[in-house]
């Protein structure tokens, strides 16, 4: 069925609007009325504190479920729900939401394709684009009002926040950075083969018997390898530091100033989250491009060819 493109203007059927309104009402009432009665909400007199370690809420088969992991799942569900909702709207002929989502994603696709060429553009875009959305959702969802104030009693009997932005959990940042680092190496090997491995283990001069030059080359290769590892740590702490700092900032400002003063910082946090997500995805693509050929390419040149 062919759809005609329209400007971004959602005209969903009444039933869809009704479902959305009911859902929002449930969320609002739950946040303002029901949840405070279920969870513990500390007052100002309890003081303010922040821990870099996320809090374990409960465990499933021995695997601890922390408040940041719960938030991460919620963000994941929101991302998937957003795309499913957009597709449902599009199925009804309302393409505005889908178009609004696809425009920046398509811009990122063209950016990635321009960097690495057609061979690995699709898998790299899929992974880096998912990382961007994942980071964005986790950064923004932490700014919701019911993040932080709602406390529950953990399995160990302590009172801990129910939800906490996953960006402040180093495990999420490290998981993304490790995934990116490993995939960059995979793309390098996939595109260049042994030539990519030789970048780190330079043994040609050693085989030729030129020991002094071979030693220098080998040392340079080791430094390259070390640099790749440092890059993962850099990835991790850039993301972790930025998102955690924002959360700490919001918490501190919220404690010492009224809500009206905090609101601009929420806007700042939204901007920082978007920028950090974009930076992570862009660096991921740039590192992959550097791994496969050191040069950006717009043509169909085989990625293995070093220009």
């Amino acid at each position: 069925m062919a759809h005609t493109a329209r400007p971004f203007r959602v005209r969903a059927p009444i039933a869809v609007w009704a479902v959305a309104a009911v859902g929002l009402a449930v969320i609002g009432v739950g946040a303002q009325v029901i949840l405070p009665s279920m969870f513990e909400i500390p007052g100002r007199g309890d003081g303010v504190g922040f821990s870099l370690i996320s809090n374990e809420l409960f465990s499933i088969a021995g695997v601890p479920v922390t408040n940041t992991l719960l938030s991460c799942w919620l963000a994941t569900l929101l991302i998937v729900s957003l795309f499913l909702t957009a597709r449902v709207f599009a199925a009804f002929g309302h393409l505005g939401l889908l178009t609004a989502i696809e425009v920046p994603i398509e811009a990122f696709w063209r950016f990635v394709q321009g960097l690495v060429g057609p061979k690995i553009a699709t898998p790299l875009f899929t992974i880096s684009g998912s990382a961007v959305l994942f980071i964005l959702a986790n950064a923004w969802i932490g700014s919701l009002p019911f993040y932080g104030p709602l406390y529950v009693t953990a399995s160990d009997g302590t009172s801990v926040p129910l939800l906490r932005g996953a960006g402040s959990d180093i495990n999420m940042s490290l998981a993304l950075a490790l995934s990116a680092g490993i995939l960059v190496q995979f793309f390098g090997v996939y595109s260049l083969g042994l030539a990519y491995v030789e970048r780190f283990f330079r043994v040609r001069l050693l085989l030729k018997g030129r020991m002094i030059a071979a030693s220098a080359e080998f040392l340079a290769g080791i430094f390259e390898l070390f640099l790749e590892m440092i890059r993962v740590l850099s990835f991790t702490f850039r993301l972790f530091g930025s998102l955690t700092a924002g959360e700490v900032l919001i918490l501190a400002i919220g404690f010492i100033a009224p809500l009206a003063v905090v609101v601009p910082f929420y806007g700042l946090e939204l901007l920082i989250g978007a920028v950090q997500a974009w930076i992570f995805g862009s660096l991921f693509a740039v590192f992959a491009a550097a791994a496969i050929g050191f040069e950006s390419r717009d043509d169909d040149t085989p990625p293995g060819a070093i220009q």
């Binding site: 992991l69 795309f83 696809e102 994603i105 899929t126 998912s130 990382a131 959305l133 490290l174 490790l178």
Partner: peptide, 30 residues
Amino acid sequence: LGFHLPSLIIYSINFAILTAVLYAIAFRPM
């Protein structure tokens, strides 16, 4: 700083699942 290997694995799996789902419902059609 809060590093916890099981959490790291769960985050990685979660990211992998999200990537697969997004590819299926969003990126591939797009």
